[in-house]
Nucleic acid binder design. Structure first.
Lengths: 110, 110
DNA sequence: TTGCTTGTTGGCTATATTGCCAAATAGCAA
DNA sequence: TTGCTATTTGGCAATATAGCCAACAAGCAA
């Protein structure tokens, strides 16, 4: 594997890794609708504030969100609005998985 | 977070996690061009066969590739050809990161 | 100032991932 | 059969990730 290609793949992998967590996907989806402060996201996710703050830090470091301190709150918003469209393909993978499971179940029951 | 939404996000996260590794991204890109046997991919990646085999297993379990045993070789191919397009957005994130770093460097040197 | 709220960071433990080697499995050919 | 090749699986050690609590920082209000 050429070194340049390897570095590129590593960079891509980092972005995907940042996305590869249910809470972080939730955050992305919510920020698609509107900017949110940490306290709102914490409330919605139902985890410790520190946990949510760390998830946001992961997303920020990956270049996916930006933060905006206002008063004693910190608001986050999406930096890349394409991120959401981009799940169309992931969805088709999930649908295919579902079809497969259904087919398997029908086979078992027949 | 509603349980149904949570499950959906967990399923998405699993697919993204399967993609979030340089070697596995390499495999996806190669399989976009043509099907490949494990030995070819191993040669290209330059890791142990067992390591590559495990990466392929991760991709298969995520529903991203399918395997096809022929003789004593196993050929893999993409199951979802949309996966590649789907990187357009990841690329724009990387480009933005690059622009930012460049701006930072210019600031330092000025 | 003090006290309250909002976030971030450090430290910890539990868990997951990675990548190697070694062992097992399966096909093919002599 | 034996031997060779291709692949998968088990096991292990090193490393990374997740999520909690505690401590800290910063804004604001009394």
């Amino acid at each position: 594997m050429y070194s340049k290609r390897k570095k590129h793949l590593e960079a891509r992998a980092k972005v995907l890794k940042a996305l590869a967590h249910p809470s972080r996907l939730f955050i992305i989806e919510e920020l698609e609708k509107a900017e949110r402060c940490v306290c709102e996201l914490t409330e919605m996710i139902g985890a410790d504030v520190s946990t949510v703050s760390k998830h946001l830090s992961v997303l920020r470091q990956a270049g996916l969100v930006v933060d905006d301190k206002r008063g004693n709150q910190v608001f986050y918003r999406l930096r890349m609005h394409c991120i959401l469209n981009f799940f169309g393909c992931v969805e088709s993978v999930l649908e295919a998985q579902l079809r497969e499971q259904t087919a398997l179940l029908e086979k078992v029951h027949s």
